[in-house]
């Protein structure tokens, strides 16, 4: 069984939901980024989303835009991100999802990307700006079977479309909590509940909800309806506020434990 499926099965047995943490790889630099991720893994995070920095992140709010810019200032590219994934894999069995815009993968080359991502020990790939209408260019690659494309669903996705997209989905489904970019305010847990139920009516694949979730209370509320909760901008905000603080990995670790507790 692959690492993603095993994670959800183990969590189900324990009666817990998945805590999915997103960080931009290489923010503020590669060594510190690895320390932060290590701290998150040791604190009980269930799934890692490793963000590939991109110059034009159109689906992201200011916090992740700035984190991406900091990583790019360090010259971090997709090759570095794959090397980071490999380093993490050497120490942890946590599922690693590569989270990217399409252009860096396109520039790397689809085949080389799959080959190197699988070798590095990644478990899935999520491409923000690659809807099912365009994803053939990735899924037609033979190697893509070893690295499922994590499908995105939005509050604007009609249920018939949800069913069609879910047909070919594996790993888990990423349900965007609201219309808007990452890190925007105003979580409507009632709407999330309704959307999660709609999606669940058409699939057996686990559902993780992300965008705009920042407090332990948010996590608990979302965890009560979904199979997993994604935190991104909230972690990046902590990184940004503690760029010169040597205690940053511990701060992130402490917060991760707090979030994890809320998924139990």
């Amino acid at each position: 069984m692959n690492r993603i499926d095993k994670t959800f099965e183990d969590l189900k047995l324990k009666g817990e939901k998945a805590l999915v943490g997103f960080v931009t790889a290489g923010d503020p630099n590669i060594p510190d980024s690895l320390k932060i991720i290590t701290s998150m893994c040791e604190a009980g995070m269930d799934i890692l989303e490793l963000g590939v920095p991109f110059s034009d992140p159109t689906a992201d709010g200011p916090v992740i835009q700035r984190s991406s810019a900091r990583a790019l200032e360090q010259g971090v590219n997709l090759k570095d991100v794959l090397e980071m994934a490999q380093t993490i894999r050497e120490h942890f069995s946590i599922p690693i999802i590569l989270f990217s815009y399409y252009n860096p993968i396109h520039a790397y080359g689809i085949e080389p990307f799959y080959r190197d991502a699988v070798t590095a020990g990644a478990d899935g790939v999520l491409v923000v700006d690659l809807p099912p209408e365009e994803s053939d260019e990735m899924t037609s690659c033979e190697l893509s079977k070893d690295l499922p494309l994590i499908r995105l669903f939005a509050p604007t996705t009609p249920v018939e479309r949800m069913a069609k997209i879910a047909e070919s989905a594996s790993g888990f489904l990423y349900l965007v909590s609201k219309t808007g970019v990452t890190g925007s305010d105003g979580l409507d847990t009632k709407e999330i509940g309704t959307n999660t139920e709609s999606l669940r009516s058409v699939t057996q694949v686990p559902i993780c909800v992300g965008f705009g979730i920042s407090t332990a209370e948010d996590v608990a509320a979302v965890a009560s309806v979904a199979d997993g909760v994604v935190i991104g901008s909230a972690f990046e905000r902590m990184i940004e506020e503690n760029l010169d603080n040597p205690g940053l990995p511990d701060i992130i670790g402490k917060k991760t434990r707090e979030y994890k507790k809320a998924t139990k």
Partner: peptide, 10 residues
Amino acid sequence: GRYIAETLMP
């Protein structure tokens, strides 16, 4: 093509 976020697809 249409390389955009799912939120915009509909």
